[in-house]
Nucleic acid binder design. Structure first.
Lengths: 150, 150
DNA sequence: GGAAGTGTTGTTATGTTATAACATAAAGAA
DNA sequence: TTCTTTATGTTATAACATAACAACACTTCC
């Protein structure tokens, strides 16, 4: 955790989250906000237990359910995403509207790129539709080498 | 496990697996074959521990590493897939050649449909390429309602 | 056949991720 | 305030996965 640089637009993302939650009539409580802040401050996806360790101080001994409840809330509000293939969580770049997202995960440096290709989501929708399937949400994660690492 | 019907073409899939492994010079041992058989016989994805319970008898008390090693082998040979969002394993429908696969997972009945849409894989490849990203493998899982359940 | 090397399995222990269940507290509405 | 709902604290445990090392079994080469 020592050399983990701060994400450039953290405060902006937090303010957006504040606004969205206010508009939606849901409560971005201190803990939820803290979890979101930790995730947004990280350039890479974090595991739930990493987040928990970050939250722990002499005063507060946080237990797993505390973190998972916050994560559940933040996912429900579209403020973060879960990367299933990494068992890790990452901030959403466009929390202001629901969308189908794709992730590019670098096998080498671990960096994650969030895409919103309408061609991908469109073709995926078409393929589902062709089977009579009604999509609710999707997990699209491509693992490989990013531009810098290849 | 009582009312779990047998998948129609299990024996065909097993024979194909036998042939592929022979051709590749890898060993589809008794245990690996048993795990593959259990997975193929199930119409729905199975967790590693479900497979383990199925394998256990009075004679053989199977431990987790046994199952996970077989799963690793079968995945490496493209004979099964892992569904990341379910932590479960399912037989591959086209083990004879490598491919990028998409899954439609029904939220209601749990059934899983395996797709190989070239439009999806193509657009995903294009989107990755546009970022200079070189894909190695992908996880594409759409959760929703299947034709029967909607 | 015997020895060496490789690949597979057995076994014990533990690591990692996630949730159940129930008690307490805080916030919002009447 | 009192009631109701929502959020948090706490303990325990479930569910998923791997590390590490010993034992066994194939293969190949002498």
């Amino acid at each position: 955790m020592a050399d983990m640089p701060t994400h450039p637009d953290t405060s902006k993302a937090m303010k957006l989250a504040d606004r969205l939650c206010r508009e939606r009539g849901v409560r971005l409580t201190k803990q939820r906000r803290e979890v979101l802040g930790i995730i947004n401050a990280s350039q890479r996806p974090l595991g739930a237990y990493e987040i928990m360790e970050t939250m722990r101080t002499d005063q507060a001994r946080i237990a797993p359910p505390t973190v998972y409840r916050a994560l559940d809330f933040l996912m429900a509000e579209g403020l973060i995403h879960k990367l299933e293939s990494l068992h890790a969580y990452i901030g959403c770049r466009h929390p202001d509207h629901p969308h189908f997202t794709q992730f590019l995960i670098c096998n080498d440096c671990g960096e994650v790129d969030e895409l919103h290709s309408s061609k991908v989501s469109g073709s995926l929708n078409d393929a589902a539709e062709a089977r009579g399937f009604k999509p609710d949400h999707s997990t699209v994660e491509v693992v490989g080498l990013c531009a810098r690492c290849r």
